[in-house]
């Protein structure tokens, strides 16, 4: 069965203000769709709306993950169905240990799937440590509170580790490159590529900069301005944007 994330004419309001004016996108497994656009164009709104943040009200359109209507599902149900959001600003939750939290999240995601169960807490921890190693994440972070006192880079890396743990069908990466230096961008990009390859995840990669796209080659590039997709193309569009900016649409 071939999986698909289908966004059709999505219109979204926050606090009475219309942000998305009708977005349509189709993402297939393993595809990378780069979403670019100026500040305030609605990129993060798209991310939060797909994940089900209660502040964002859908006024029209539909979103389907496979055959399921995503928009009637709560955020936790969406995650269980295989959707993942890497946050631009991951939230700190003091005292909630990363490894305990991830075990709960894993169990919610793969509940009832016999082949995905770990025999013991210890077996899951080993799995987690192995993933951390693969993604070059300090395993000490797993014992700390969730994002508690983490540096910006550590937070972003932990988002990628969470993606690896939850093996999403579709992932939205919201400015995963923001605030990172070049080495960190490289490391994060390597992790993302590994996850895409391993789980055949379809990705919406939201970014301001072309740099991360040097490491993760997008199959499609979409430019969003004022809540609409104004242009779509292949990776060559990135170069054009780099040269000309977004002026021609504003």
């Amino acid at each position: 069965m071939s999986s698909v994330l289908n966004i059709k004419d999505l219109q979204v309001k926050i606090d009475q203000k219309q942000i998305l004016q009708g977005i349509s996108l189709t993402v297939k497994p393993g595809e990378v769709h780069a979403i670019m656009g100026p500040n305030g164009s609605g990129k993060s709104t798209l991310a939060y709306t797909l994940t089900g943040h209660p502040a964002y009200k859908v006024t029209q359109g539909e979103v389907k993950l496979d055959k399921n209507d995503l928009l009637v599902m709560s955020p936790d149900e969406r995650a269980q169905a295989g959707l993942f959001l890497a946050f631009q600003h991951p939230t700190e939750i003091p005292g909630v240990k990363v490894q305990n939290f991830l075990r709960q999240a894993y169990r919610a995601r793969f509940e009832g799937q016999k082949t995905k169960q770990f025999g013991s807490v210890l077996a899951f921890r080993k799995h987690l440590e192995k993933l951390a190693q693969e993604l070059q994440i300090n395993p000490e972070l797993l014992k700390r509170g969730l994002n508690e006192g983490f540096s910006g880079g550590e937070k972003k890396r932990l988002e990628i580790l969470q993606m690896a743990v939850l093996e999403p069908k579709f992932a939205i990466l919201d400015e995963i490159d923001s605030g990172l230096d070049i080495d960190a961008i490289k490391a994060v990009a390597t992790g993302i590529k590994r996850n895409i390859k391993k789980y055949n995840t379809g990705v919406l990669l939201i970014t301001h900069y072309q740099r991360i796209l040097d490491y993760i080659k997008p199959n499609f590039v979409h430019v969003i301005v004022e809540g609409k997709v104004v242009e779509s193309g292949d990776k060559n569009l990135v170069k054009k944007l780099e040269a000309d900016g977004y002026q021609k649409w504003s």
Binding site: P75, D76, Q80, L85, F87, V96, K97, Q162
Partner: peptide, 24 residues
């Protein structure tokens, strides 16, 4: 929202936050 976006129900998420608060 962060915890729920990882598949954890709202009820469980609230408990986790409270237990985390007094963990130390």
């Amino acid at each position: 929202f962060y915890l729920m976006s990882r598949g954890i129900t709202q009820k469980t998420a609230r408990k986790m936050i409270v237990n985390g608060f007094i963990e130390d």
